[in-house]
Amino acid sequence: MRAAFRAAALSTPDLDARVLTAHATDREPNEVVLKGEEPVGERMRECALSLANDRLAGKPVARILGRKEFWGLTFTLSDETLEPRPDTELLVEQVLECCGDRSAELTILDIGTGSGAIAVSLLHELPRAIAIGTDLSQGALLAARANACRNGVGERFFPVACDGHSAISGDFDFLVSNPPYIRSMDITTLDVGVRQHDPVLALDGGADGLAAYRSIARDSRHLLRRGGYVFFEIGYDQAAEVAAISVESGYENISVFQDLAGHDRVIRGFRAT
């Protein structure tokens, strides 16, 4: 498997081979290294071959396994959810930076919750917070609900089926969103693992990639209490435009945060009045 992955120039061939072999042989990844010479049965060999073929066809490892680690938690994936990515952990970090007392009773609105990765991770760190997660996709909401329960915060996570925040009212402390932000014309240029396996609904941000930001920012300010914050994940080249949209929508003290690669990744806005 490893040799085939190397020959195919996969970005992490050794790691992929180890993880998939572990899955096929019902072992932990480190056991694959320590017990790699031990014989396995025909069923396990066939399973490993099938997994390898899926990976060589461009299917991401997380999609093959049906789960992904994020913020130290495990999230089940479905066809209707994005695969949570490490860059999104920056948004979680920045929300927590603004929390002050993490034991406070806080309210969070996660627009386009998908797998629930952002909301569930925040609830895991904020023991008295509650979160509403909205999504157009029923399949995504079922996955988010299952992930909340799996990670011990199910009683504080409330999925709502709606377009954006159209069915929501209230005064939230935090509004968070990782909306679709890829320009429509760029969808076909994405990596095959994203293009073929992430839902287009969660990728396509319209002609300029900014449609969801306009919709959310324009109509969401009234959902935040005075002193509340809005957080958006953004594309690496969208900071100036999303910042302008946020200011036009009445948000103040706009801040931009960079990911580990130095790319603009998260924007924060503040409702002062």
Rank of each mutant, 00 (worst) to 15 (best):
D101R: 10
R63D: 05
S220P: 13
K59R: 15
A148G: 14
I234W: 01
T273D: 13
K68F: 06
L123S: 04
C98A: 06
V153C: 09
D54P: 00
G209T: 08
W71G: 04
A62R: 05
W71P: 02
T188I: 11
A202W: 04
R225Q: 06
A239E: 13
G114C: 07
P86Y: 08
A119F: 05
E37Y: 05
S115A: 15
L10H: 04
G269K: 09
R18T: 10
P127G: 03
K59C: 07
P199I: 00
V160R: 08
S11A: 14
P29A: 11
V19Q: 01
G227R: 00
K59S: 08
G235W: 08
Y213V: 12
K59G: 04
R195N: 06
F70Y: 07
G58Q: 12
A212D: 09
L34Q: 13
F172V: 09
L34F: 10
H124L: 00
V160D: 01
R156T: 12
A3Y: 04
A52N: 05
A161V: 03
P179Y: 09
T273A: 07
F158I: 12
S166Q: 14
V19N: 02
N253T: 01
G116W: 01
S115W: 08
E93Q: 15
F157W: 12
G193S: 09
R214S: 07
N53A: 15
A57L: 14
N253A: 14
Q196I: 00
S215H: 04
N147K: 10
E105Y: 01
V266Y: 05
Y236I: 10
D135E: 11
I182E: 07
F232R: 02
V120L: 11
D79C: 02
F257I: 10
V200P: 00
T74C: 06
T113D: 03
I187M: 14
L90M: 07
S137G: 11
G205K: 10
Y229P: 00
M185V: 14
I108L: 13
Y236F: 15
R102T: 15
S177G: 02
E248T: 10
L123R: 10
R102V: 14
I216L: 03
R195L: 11
D204C: 04
R67Y: 07
E28G: 02
N147T: 06
R214K: 13
S184F: 10
F157A: 09
R265V: 12
V200W: 02
G209H: 09
G112E: 02
E155I: 09
E80G: 03
A104Q: 12
A212F: 13
T189I: 01
L34M: 12
R150E: 03
E38F: 04
P13E: 09
P179A: 13
N178Y: 10
Q138E: 15
G100C: 07
L190F: 11
